[in-house]
């Protein structure tokens, strides 16, 4: 490698200008999370891969990155599942259908679906990590011939915080899906599994020679999920992880999302686990 020469600005793209999209539908998922259905102008397709993200902005408030929650197999519009935790998401929570929002992207490296094809797909999603993983789950469900069994492990802090409850029910009833859910602390009427997400993994029926696994959740979850998967004999080469970092530009320029020398917005957010092993700050 060497230093790239200065190029003519005429050859450069506009990196920071959004496309003005429209919120088509707003559906409250829980007290904190909302699902937004978004349409690009002229019915344009977003053209994303499961696991990618977009930068959403409201003028005068700011811009932030959000995972795409819908599968690219569901065309015409795309969905963003957003938790209300800051300035931009507070304002978004008050937005209704018809509101214009700025969209840049899709950005980053999503799930390399080619490497999941023909294999059993294991999704380990903790909390809001289900939002990006739902893109992959529905992708697999929409192309049943391309993949083996779909195994979903979903953990939430409490049953009141479970996301996409109607879809969870569908997954539970789908004979081709092994759906497991657990909550850290259940309410008195919770009859399901209680415990952290890693307690679901020992009971799974896994074909270790034909498995691809993707993990997404809060930062604290990754090391424990990894230990649980490894103790079941899941091979490192069969594990992918979707990581969160602060991002501003999404195009590998602003520097915020770096893990050592890797830009999460370019090399991630979905990393193959053997790559992460060389990134000492990753987990």
């Amino acid at each position: 490698m060497k230093l790239q020469d200065l190029i003519n600005p005429a050859a450069a793209k506009e990196l920071y200008l959004p496309v003005m999209a429209e919120i088509r539908d707003v559906r409250k998922l829980t007290e904190l999370e909302t699902l937004y259905t978004v349409a690009l102008p002229g019915g344009a397709e977003l053209g994303h891969q499961p696991g990618q993200f977009v930068a959403v902005s409201l003028f005068g408030v700011g811009e932030a990155p959000f995972s795409i929650s819908s599968s690219p197999t569901r065309r015409g519009v795309f969905e963003l599942g957003i938790r209300r935790v800051g300035m931009l998401t507070d304002v978004l929570a008050g937005c209704t259908a018809g509101r214009k929002i700025g969209i840049r992207g899709p950005f980053g490296r999503g799930i390399d679906v080619e490497r999941f094809k023909g294999k059993d797909v294991l999704i380990v999603a903790g909390g809001i990590g289900l939002v990006p993983m739902r893109s992959m789950i529905n992708y697999v469900l929409d192309r049943p011939g391309d993949f083996g069994r779909l195994i979903i492990c979903y953990g939430s802090r409490s049953d009141r915080e479970l996301l996409f409850t109607d879809e969870l029910e569908k997954w539970r009833r789908n004979p081709n899906v092994d759906f497991r859910v657990t909550v850290d602390r259940g309410s008195p009427d919770w009859t399901g599994h209680t415990g952290v997400i890693t307690t679901l993994i020992p009971g799974l029926n896994l074909d270790l020679d034909n498995l691809a696994c993707c993990v997404c959740g809060p930062p604290v979850m990754y090391r424990f999920a990894l230990l649980a998967l490894r103790s079941r004999g899941v091979k490192e080469k069969d594990i992918w992880m979707s990581l969160e970092r602060r991002m501003k530009c999404g195009v590998g320029k602003c520097g915020h999302c770096q893990i050592n020398g890797s830009y999460v917005c370019q090399d991630g957010p979905v990393y193959h686990y053997p790559e992460i092993k060389a990134l000492q700050e990753a987990l």
């Binding site: 230093l3 020469d5 200065l6 600005p9 920071y16 590998g252």
Partner: peptide, 22 residues
């Protein structure tokens, strides 16, 4: 400056820097 030229030319080239640098 040579290093900044690299950063704003490589990968996603950035118009703002490249114009100002012209």
């Amino acid at each position: 400056v040579r290093r900044l030229d690299h950063n704003f030319s490589a990968g996603n080239a950035e118009r703002n820097y490249l114009v100002r640098r012209q």
